[in-house]
Design a binder for these strands. Structure first.
Lengths: 232, 232
DNA sequence: ATTATAATTATGTATAGACATAACAAATGT
DNA sequence: ACATTTGTTATGTCTATACATAATTATAAT
């Protein structure tokens, strides 16, 4: 009967050795077999620990070669994409949204390109103002593809937000997201009761089901907004 | 002899059933034992597949209860934090950086708070302008804690960038990052040869070794910059 | 009726042993 | 000298079995 070691404790110990510099960046660490012998456990348990370290970018692993401490440990920031309503309610504010625009139109060329569409597909164009305690926080501008979203033109988006309807009704297989900064236009400034030209944070998100684009959205945040997360 | 199934193929098949709506959000899916029987494989293999689906937020798993399709599948955007030089070189541009400021000073209160420091610790304050093909792309403003970074005052940061020196010499145990937009000040606008008040994308990053703050940095990006990533 | 205790059950993780696979090294044939 | 084949090795994954753990349900004690 051998001592029972959890893969977590091995993970943590190996991580410590890397962080404390016992194993320097670039070093080849002992093979799974040897570590298993050291920790008195099965190789599979060491494997589980090493895989965790590789996932978080601390190790590079290659068959036949071994596990090497990453020379340039890549760090990742993981952002959780929530439904706006939940985000607002989680910080104890009252959520409300107002539909400001709704039209069946051809998308501008820039959007057609982003969504990989023909120039003859009419999209549902919807704009929404999201509010926390009646203060506008996000202006949402969205194009929806009726080819994928059957019956989308019949949905009453004053009752349920588009975001929420989508999350509940379709599942995307892939997506991309980009962040940038922009100067508020005259019209946008009015929405936020802000000044013309103020800097605002923008998220653009496009989601797909296999090769077909579902929707593309631009989320214009109120001036002063800051998005925070932990590094891993 | 049973058929050999990889956990990946099971993962993909189960994922398909969720995406295609065969298993609806909120549904309890068959137990590992049953799935193992269906796929003619060991329970451990099904477990590996289900763990993958849970990691990507598609399933909620609870002991004794089972695995449930997430009602509000949370999506994550993962951003890779690279060394700026590598980022520039990866897109085929020539990297250069210029040290614009270096001082041993008390940090402003706002920064002291962010770094959780006493108000009597003198920090190394360093500013750098990062360039791609001699065009300024990022203005880096950084405070370094000499309590953690012994001998930091003696390093020649015109030869190696602070970023790179840090990555190679200290490893952080945790960190936080935040994104926002700001209007360029007169001085900042000059750096980028841009107009006063133009919107710029800002990343603020603070890293720690256990309870001690290592460094806090503000990366001011050139106007028009956009950061993109895949959703997972 | 309420509370404490035990049984049950699905997931979580451990084990040893096996084979699969990728990458490198050595041996071989031309 | 070169390309091709063969062997070796560390990781990747699978199997079967076992025990651990958390959550729920059933049972017993008060």
């Amino acid at each position: 009967m051998t001592t029972r070691k959890s893969w977590q404790s091995i993970h943590d110990e190996l991580r410590r050795r890397i962080v404390d510099g016992i194993w320097q960046p670039g070093d080849l660490i002992p093979a799974e077999e040897q570590l298993a012998a050291e920790f008195q456990c099965a190789r599979a348990t060491v494997n589980r620990a090493l895989r965790g370290l590789a996932d978080s970018g601390l190790l590079n692993r290659r068959r036949r070669v071994g596990s090497r401490v990453a020379t340039e440990p890549s760090r990742y920031a993981t952002l959780k994409i929530d439904i706006i309503r939940l985000e607002v309610e989680q910080r104890g504010a009252k959520y409300r949204h107002a539909l400001t625009e709704r039209a069946q139109v051809l998308a501008p060329e820039r959007v057609q390109y982003r969504m990989n569409l023909n120039d003859d597909t009419e999209l549902l164009y919807i704009c929404n103002l999201h509010m926390a305690d009646d203060r506008p926080i996000i202006y949402e501008e969205r194009w929806l593809n009726p080819v994928v979203l059957h019956g989308i033109f019949d949905v009453d988006f004053s009752a349920i937000s588009v975001n929420e309807w989508l999350v509940r009704n379709v599942m995307f297989t892939r997506g991309d997201i980009s962040f940038c900064a922009t100067n508020l236009t005259e019209r946008e400034a009015q929405l936020f009761a802000a000044d013309l030209g103020e800097a605002a944070f923008v998220i653009e998100r496009t989601t797909w089901q296999d090769e077909q684009c579902i929707t593309s959205v631009r989320l214009l945040h109120e001036p002063g907004f800051s998005m925070r997360t932990e590094l891993i």
